[in-house]
Amino acid sequence: MRDDQQEELARLAAAGDNAALEALLAGIRPRVLRQCSRFLPCYQDAEEACQDVLLQVARNIRNFEGRSKFTTWLHVIVANGSRQTYRTLKRRAAEQGYAEMPVEVADARTTSVIAGSRLDLLDALERLEASRAELVAPMVLRDICQLDYREIATHLGIPEGTVKSRIHQARSQVREYLLAGL
């Protein structure tokens, strides 16, 4: 689905058009799943996050005011939903007595090292959120969702220079966490 079609369906859905909402959800599902997969290395976890994101879109579409593009609004929901799914999975693992989240043994010949680094990044973002929460959203929107600085500034309601500064600070802090092995 093209972005302009999404924008129109989002506008109609925000105004209460249920048919537009259904079409929007069906149209964005593949994109949402791909984006959730950027955060979560396990396909089943990405699917769970995708379902949660689609539910959040359906519940909150009336709050979409069109001040930013729908895709920007969606990126924020995807980032938050994926990170929330990761926190839930970590909590479940802890409740079941695991020191860390259980990971299926994978064949090293077919598994990318990126999967492990994504989990490390999510842990680092969680740690950063605990100490400097205002730095997390700009970095996630830029480095994971790949939005440009202007879109991030518009969405967050802060100057573009502040966005760049926060991203720089976040990257430095996350780099320290990753180098220290969390």
Score class of each variant (00 low, 15 high):
C145F: 04
R34P: 00
V53L: 08
Q173E: 10
Y86V: 00
V32P: 03
V53F: 02
Y149H: 01
R142T: 12
R171M: 03
A94H: 03
L25F: 09
R11C: 07
S37Y: 01
Q35T: 09
C145M: 14
T72E: 03
L74R: 14
L55R: 02
E48N: 09
A124M: 06
E8P: 00
L33C: 14
G116V: 09
S82F: 08
R166D: 09
D17P: 00
A10P: 00
E104L: 15
S117Q: 14
Q96V: 05
A133H: 00
Y98A: 13
I114E: 03
R166M: 04
N80S: 09
Q6T: 01
N63W: 09
A79S: 15
A20S: 15
K90I: 07
L89C: 13
R127S: 11
T85M: 05
S117T: 14
Q84S: 15
T72V: 11
L141G: 02
E95V: 06
L156I: 02
I114T: 07
D120W: 00
C145A: 14
P159S: 10
N18A: 04
E151I: 08
N60I: 03
D107P: 05
L24F: 05
D143K: 09
I158W: 10
R142L: 05
P159I: 04
Q5R: 04
R142Y: 05
Q56V: 13
E95F: 02
D3F: 11
D17V: 05
R38A: 12
K90H: 12
G66L: 12
D107T: 04
C50E: 09
E65H: 08
S68T: 14
